[in-house]
Write a protein that binds this DNA or RNA. Structure first.
Length: 967
RNA sequence: GCGAGGGUGGCGGAAUUGGCAGACGCGCUAGCCUUAGGAGCUAGUGCCUUCGGGCGUGCGGGUUCGAGUCCCGCCCUUCGCACCA
């Protein structure tokens, strides 16, 4: 570059100049009546919580780049923006500041819009919506009523977290570490009538239709699948001795013969009835403790399983064994039937519980490997036992305290006979694995029933004497180190010890047992989901009121559609209140009978607001309808939806549910709301933590990474940006120092968009430097450009020129594909950088071709303009054009410009790169010609001197691989 | 524990279909320029080297003319779910 000083890149002036140009030009207004070339791009709308940091910016910058790109490609692109404006943080902030949540929300929205403007991020602002606006929540209420009419909204008693200090109900997310997030008091369970949406009715469709979502990330689909948590199995009816039916759900009906006890959730309805007089007090105490602790502190995953015997018994329908009924908090009332049959031999939790409480553990499923192992204490047999076993070709090994014999399933019996023969009269041994048995000198007792278990324990106790203290056969076995890992397995295998079902193959066992249960009316095939109905009631102020009226005479009456919206009462906000606390709000008249009635005082979960907003954007101002069917049917499903992975489950699942419900009601003609989903990674940044003073702002931190208060060395963990960790970067500071274009460029360049990335000051500087180079280069080139209609003629270019010309076209193709098909903005940016580098080198030539310069410079500006729109506008005018790059259209590439005349082909000899040959393109494309050219190359010839060529492989346009043998 | 990602120079990352590993950027080194700046320009920059070459994409095997990429077995790490019967 020449040394004379040129005009500097004045990003402040440039960004100020073009800041409103797109809005004024109406470039992003779209007519939703359009039916051709339409594209619905949607970013998840934000919660207006103060201000957006550079991490939030990533999401919207990606959207803005894509929108500008599609716009240049001639699409009618719909890219709207709105505000998920209801919710708890607004109430909390309002409480702290003594203002109304609406005031706080409105202020934040205004500030966020100003941030978008500074970022150069444009939307069709005529479509702005805010969920706290009556014109919006009126239709949220309409949605509620539609679901209600369909029987998909209903009310039932449910337990919520109630904070006795704040005197209010807490949402789950307000309970942090088992305490109220505001005051730290542990919440109490409280049972209230609550509204639910019957999402479970759609569980199967929500699960099955995931397969149709081909352009969703696999991880998100998997998360939804896990969340829905479908398990297939059977319900089995156990009769209690008092005559009640106790229904359990199991995924392993084939293990029924191994069910040696039952466990109920402490809250189970039958607990009171079942508990015997002697056990009642203990049961009640355990249950009360469980109810209090269950939801509060689940964090200790590895806590011991506890439980209490109810005193009652049930009958195992498979073998009529009498089995005890326990209660334990490891069984959850919220899953299945709240009761289980415990099969301790094949369920890890049941195994631990049974060992702890001395309940029998009976193996009923064979191990897949069908191996067995016997342990023979040395005191139980004579001195020549080892020799005898060897003579019988058994694999015997001497271990501490005795011998271990490993057998395959077909020689277990032989080993057992041998051991029995060798036993002293008071000795005993055991075998586990494919066969479980205890061996005595006068009998071999299979460990296959509770009675056998008792007999084994009694015999062992007798033989062992006072030191014996095991309660079950399994407990004896767990004390033998050689058996570690062999006593328990949860695999599917052949049934054993299961009466006439013994020997049933594992792959058929479940079906065969289920069929038998159904035939004998002892149970049936059943499916259980982890997914629960969606609790939408919030006892809060800042949300959409539930449009239901309770009349003493008529009962539950929906508010007639003509009376919507049910407005939030416009009262001074006093904090910590729900609608129930507002005098007069609930008083109304019954729409049916006209008598006195009460309004429902719950508001809706904000996920209801966001479960349908993507529909409202199509006709945001329609006063008569939530949306227009014909229009939404055209524009939806959303072509591209982009947001944070933190919404992978709830928001996306609720939206899918609502769409399916609306489809069933005939309101929309599609079953899935979002055709393509992309989840962007988070932006991380170093945080500073003092062990004593907590999180510190970077600017507080003194030199040497020490705490300014106590001089202690600080920890520097690396976290996604969050206010609480004080590691956010404010975009206004970046924009002020290097400009929005630099921030946009850096945000895209720093890494693949689906991965978490670290914000770095050095990276910002590099991006800023690049834009300065682009600026200088274009300013430098401007007087040397051919007129703006000129295009380069490749025939007249020299080698350097032709190379640049090819680079221009290759770059257009790469950037187009990277943006549109691959969502790979970082590589698109690096391609633009490479073009800039080449252009800079070419520009150093005095005789640079003016038409080529024109083509290269124009192209560079155009493909950079979606990423750096301010600079794009400025430079486009500078090089002599009128209007915005947005009006020009995305540049096209020439296919004939993609390939060079001469291609350099690497040559490998025995897998190692040994030479490169330059060949004409038509030679490189032909395997035989390419092979010949490589072999004729002097360098290759020299390397082949004196060796024998065994094989030559030529891959057209790629490489030549030679296999040789040294003499 | 279950599920899904990820592991490549000093750092962020690239390699799209099994075909030249390290594009692009940061940092660093040397030089130039300069009324000195956290500026700009030029060159270099994976490691080792006896200057022939050798080694190199978490580790160990395998397939192949050829493996960052495919297969088998491990290790580490991030995220999500987690007593789900």
């Amino acid at each position: 570059m020449t040394a004379h000083s040129i005009e500097p890149y004045d990003f402040r002036a440039i960004e100020t100049r073009w800041r409103d140009t797109w809005r004024k030009g109406g470039y992003f207004h779209v007519d939703t009546k359009a039916r051709e070339n339409t594209f619905y791009y949607l970013n998840m709308f934000p919660y207006p919580s103060g201000y957006l940091h550079v991490g939030h910016g990533r999401n919207y910058i990606i959207g803005d780049v894509l929108t500008r790109f599609y716009r240049m490609r001639g699409y009618h692109i719909l890219n709207p923006m709105g505000w998920d404006a209801f919710g708890l943080p607004a109430e909390n902030a309002a409480i702290d500041r003594g203002i109304h949540p609406r005031e706080w929300t409105v202020k934040n929205i205004a500030h966020a819009k100003e941030q978008f403007r500074a970022w150069g991020i444009e939307y069709d602002w005529d479509r702005e919506i805010s969920t706290c606006d009556p014109d919006y929540y009126r239709w949220t209420q309409w949605l509620f009523l539609e679901l209600y009419k369909k029987g998909l909204a209903y009310r039932k008693l449910a337990t919520v977290n109630y904070c006795p200090q704040c005197k209010t109900v807490l949402a789950n997310e307000q309970v942090v570490g088992g305490a109220c997030e505001r005051c730290g008091t542990p919440p109490e369970p409280k049972t209230l009538e609550q509204w639910f949406f019957k999402i479970t009715e759609y569980a199967d469709r929500l699960l099955d239709d995931l397969a149709k979502l081909e352009s969703w990330p696999e991880s998100v689909k998997k998360m939804q699948e896990n969340w829905i948590g479908k398990s297939e199995g059977a319900e089995v009816v156990f009769k209690t001795e008092k005559g009640d039916d106790l229904v359990v759900f199991t995924t392993r009906p084939d293990t029924l013969w191994g069910a040696t006890f039952m466990v109920l959730a402490p809250e189970h309805a039958l607990v009171d009835k079942l508990a015997t007089k002697e056990q009642k007090a203990e049961v009640a105490a355990y249950r009360d403790r469980a109810i209090r602790t269950s939801d509060i502190d689940r964090l200790s995953t590895e806590r011991d399983k506890t439980g209490v015997f109810t005193g009652a018994y049930a009958v195992n329908p498979a073998n009529n064994e009498r089995i005890p009924i326990w209660i334990a908090d490891y069984v959850l009332m919220s899953y299945g039937t709240g009761a289980i049959m415990a099969v301790p031999a094949h369920d890890e939790r049941d195994f631990a519980f049974a060992l702890r409480y001395g309940l029998p553990i009976l193996p009923v499923i064979e191990r897949l490997d069908r191996r067995a192992r016997a342990f023979v204490p040395s005191s139980a047999v004579g001195g020549d036992f080892e020799k005898v076993a060897r003579a019988d070709e058994l694999s015997i090994e001497s271990v501490a305290g005795g011998f271990v014999i490993d057998c395959a399933w077909d020689n277990v019996n032989r080993a057992v006979r041998l051991i029995q023969t060798a036993l002293e009269p008071n000795g005993w041994a055991s075998v586990v694995g494919t066969r479980f048995a205890f061996i005595f000198h006068d009998a071999v007792i299979a460990h296959d029933s509770a009675a056998a278990d008792r007999e084994i324990v009694a015999r062992c106790a007798l033989l062992t004497g006072a030191t014996f203290n095991a309660r079950t056969a399994m407990e004896i076995l767990t004390k033998i180190p050689a058996y570690e890992g062999l006593l328990f397995h949860a695999g599917v295998g052949t049934m054993q010890h299961s009466g006439r079902f013994s020997g049933t193959r594992g792959d058929q066992a479940k079906d065969i047992v289920t069929a038998w249960l159904e035939k004998g009316q002892k149970g049936k095939k059943a499916i259980t989901y982890r997914l629960h109905d969606w609790l939408i009631s919030r006892q809060r102020y800042w949300g959409a009121p539930i449009p239901i009226i309770n009349c003493k005479k008529c009962g539950e009456v929906p508010v007639p559609e003509k009376d919507l919206p049910v407005l939030l009462p416009d009262v001074a906000f006093i904090g910590k209140m729900g609608l129930a606390d507002i005098p007069g709000y609930a008083d109304t008249t019954c729409p049916k009978c006209g008598g006195k009635a009460k309004r429902d005082t719950d508001t809706m979960d904000t996920f209801v607001d966001s479960s349908w907003y993507y529909l409202r954007f199509i006709n945001p101002h329609d006063a008569r309808r939530a949306f227009v069917r014909d229009d939404v049917d055209h524009w939806l499903p959303v072509n591209q939806y982009v947001g944070g992975v933190e919404h992978a489950i709830l928001h996306l699942l609720y939206s899918r549910f609502v769409t399916k419900a609306l489809f069933d009601m005939g309101h929309v003609g599609f079953e899935e709301p979002f055709a393509r989903l992309f989840t962007q990674g988070m932006v991380c940044h170093t945080a500073y933590k003092c062990p004593e003073h907590g999180w510190l702002y970077p600017k507080e931190v003194a030199d040497g990474n020490r705490c300014p208060h106590c001089q202690k060395p600080l920890e520097n963990p690396y976290f996604s940006m969050s206010k609480s960790k004080k590691n956010v970067v404010d975009p206004s500071e970046i924009i002020d120092r290097v400009g929005a274009d630099t921030e946009r460029l850096y945000t895209l360049f720093m890494g693949p968009p689906d991965r978490d990335i670290e914000w770095s000051e050095e990276g910002i500087r590099g991006s800023f430097r690049f834009l300065n180079r682009v600026w200088a280069l274009v300013v430098e080139a401007t007087p040397r450009l051919a007129p703006r209609t000129a295009a380069a003629d490749p025939a007249t270019l020299d080698a350097d020129g032709a190379a640049l010309w090819r680079r221009v076209h290759r770059t257009v193709r790469k950037v187009s594909e990277d943006i549109q098909d691959r969502f790979s903005f970082n590589t698109a940016v690096s391609a633009i950088m490479e073009l800039t580098n080449d252009l800079g080198r070419y520009l150093e030539r005095e005789d640079a071709d003016p038409a080529l310069l024109r083509e290269a410079v124009d192209t560079l500006i155009l493909i950079l303009s979606p990423i750096c729109p301010f600079l794009g506008e400025e430079l486009w005018r500078r090089v002599g054009h009128e209007g915005s790059p947005l009006e020009v259209g995305w540049p096209r590439y020439r296919v004939d410009a993609l390939a060079a005349d001469t291609i350099e082909i690497p040559v490998q000899i025995n897998g190692k790169l040994r030479a490169k040959v330059a060949v004409p393109a038509e030679v490189a494309a032909d395997a035989e010609a390419l092979k010949a050219a490589a072999l004729a190359d002097p360098e290759v010839k020299a390397k082949l001197e004196g060796v024998e060529l065994l094989k030559a492989i030529a891959v057209p346009n790629k490489m030549v691989s030679l296999v040789v043998k040294a003499p």
